[in-house]
């Protein structure tokens, strides 16, 4: 982590798929940079030989029986869709 690293708010907001107003951009980049500055504190800690921890307990691949189970009925699964037609979700056109 370099000390001068600062957040490119345009780029990250785009990756996060969130449209921001100009006011939000300037406010958020200021706040996020001060949070990042605080987070850089972790550099003080030597972690060279430390295993990363993804999960509190040692649980590895958890398998279930390969048996079909009943899922939600289509109408139940679709009832919260903002737009639907013929048991499908209507989305903007994604291919030309």
């Amino acid at each position: 982590m370099s000390e001068e690293r600062s957040i490119d708010i345009e780029k990250v907001a785009d990756l996060a798929r969130i449209a921001l107003t100009n006011d939000e951009k300037s406010k958020l980049s200021g706040q996020l940079n001060s949070i990042l500055e605080y987070i850089n504190k972790l550099n003080e800690l030597d972690t060279d030989d430390v295993e990363p921890m993804a999960h509190p307990h040692s649980v590895f691949n958890v398998w279930r029986e390969d048996k079909a189970e009943t899922g939600l009925p289509i109408q139940e699964a679709l009832k919260n869709a903002p737009k639907q037609r013929q048991n499908m979700i209507v989305v903007p056109k994604v291919v030309e």
Binding site: M1, I39, L42, N43, T47, V50, E51, P52, M53, A54
Partner: peptide, 15 residues
């Protein structure tokens, strides 16, 4: 590596 992995290693030390 600099953030998420580092934090997960710190998490090991905290535990």
């Amino acid at each position: 590596d600099a953030y998420y992995l580092k934090a997960q290693k710190c998490r090991t030390l905290i535990r």
